[in-house]
C-alpha cells in the first residue's frame, strides 16, 4: 500500500461570483508515493504545488477526486507533520511551547521537546520568544514542531526559501538526517532544481496552471550525496539537456544549493 495516493480530477478556486473568475489549479493529477520515499515536487510559481500539499494535508477538502494517506482520508490521518513556507510560530508562545503545541497529553512530552530542540541546536532558546530568534532559528523551531509528533508523512512547502545558502544547506542536512532516522515519507515542494536533486529520492515535475504531472523520475544517485557533489550537477545538467522544452521556463533554476 502506498503511503500517499493522490488522484485529483479537478481542483478549482472560485475567486468571484462569475464562472469566468474561477481558476483551475490542478487537473488530472495522479501520484503514488511509497513509504519512506522523499519526493520533491518541482514546478513553476503558481502551478498548484502549495494547493497539492494543502489537499494532501487535509487543509482543503474542496476538490474532485480521492486522496488517501496511509489508507485513510487526509482529515482522518493523524501522523502528518507540516512545514509551511513561513515558520508560522505563535509569537506569544516560546520555542518550547511552540513545539509542544502540536502534541497533546503525552507522558514524555517535555523530554521529547528538549531532545528535539537539542538536535536542532535550539536547546538554549527553549524559553525564547520567536521575535528574538533569527530566520534560520525560526525555521529550525518549525522543523522541530513538524517532527515532534513523529509523523509518518512530512509535508514541506518550500521551507528554506529566502534563507541564505549556508543556513539553508544546514537545515537541509538536518531534514535529511531526521527523515532517514525516523523513516518518514516526505513530500517536499520546491521550484529549485538543485535543491530537489540534492534532497529527493524522486522528482515529480508539474506543468503550469492547471498543474499536472509532466515528468516523474527517480534520482539514481548515492543516498549520502552532498549538495556540492559533481553527481548532483551532472544529474541536473543531463536533465536539462534531455528535457529542454519541458523544463524551460518551468523552473527557476536558482544557484542556492551547493554554492556554499
Amino acid at each position: 500500500m502506498s503511503a500517499v495516493s493522490v488522484e485529483i480530477l479537478k481542483k478549482i478556486y472560485n475567486n468571484g461570483v462569475s464562472s469566468q473568475s474561477s481558476v483551475t489549479a490542478l487537473e488530472n493529477f495522479r501520484l503514488e508515493i511509497k513509504r519512506g520515499e522523499f519526493t520533491c515536487i518541482v514546478g513553476p510559481s503558481g502551478c498548484g504545488k502549495t494547493t497539492l500539499l494543502n489537499l494532501i494535508g487535509g487543509l482543503d477538502k474542496n476538490f474532485e477526486g480521492v486522496i488517501s494517506v496511509n489508507g485513510v482520508s487526509p482529515q482522518r490521518s493523524s501522523a502528518v507533520g507540516y512545514m509551511f513556507q513561513s515558520p508560522r510560530l505563535m509569537p506569544w508562545l516560546n520555542v518550547g511551547q511552540n513545539v509542544g503545541l502540536v502534541v497533546d497529553k503525552e507522558p514524555n512530552k517535555d523530554k521529547k521537546i528538549k531532545e528535539l530542540l537539542s538536535e536542532m541546536e535550539l536547546d538554549k532558546f527553549i524559553n525564547a520568544y520567536p521575535k528574538s530568534l533569527s530566520g534560520g532559528m525560526r525555521r529550525r523551531a518549525a522543523l522541530a514542531r513538524a517532527f515532534i509528533t513523529e509523523p509518518d508523512l512530512l509535508l514541506l512547502d518550500e521551507p528554506f526559501l529566502s534563507l541564505d545558502v549556508p543556513v539553508a544547506n544546514r537545515l537541509r542536512k538536518m531534514l535529511l538526517n531526521l527523515c532517514k532516522r525516523r523513516s518518514a515519507t516526505a513530500v517536499f515542494v520546491t521550484h529549485d532544481l538543485r535543491e530537489a536533486i540534492y534532497l529527493g529520492d524522486r522528482l515529480v515535475f508539474m506543468s503550469g496552471t492547471p498543474g499536472r504531472v509532466v515528468l516523474d523520475l527517480l534520482v539514481d544517485l548515492p543516498s549520502q550525496r552532498l549538495p556540492e557533489d559533481p553527481d548532483v550537477e551532472r544529474f541536473r545538467h543531463n536533465l536539462l539537456e534531455q528535457h529542454p522544452r519541458l523544463l524551460a521556463g518551468l523552473i527557476e533554476d536558482t544557484e542556492s544549493v551547493g554554492n556554499t
Binding site: 507540516y82 503545541l101 502540536v102 497533546d104 509528533t149
Partner: peptide, 18 residues
C-alpha cells in the same frame, strides 16, 4: 496560524486557548 493547528490536528480546546 489557525491552519497550523488544523494541519497538526490539534484539538479544538487547545486551538481555542493556545
Amino acid at each position: 496560524l489557525l491552519q497550523v493547528t488544523q494541519a497538526f490536528k490539534v484539538s479544538p480546546y487547545r486551538t481555542f486557548f493556545k
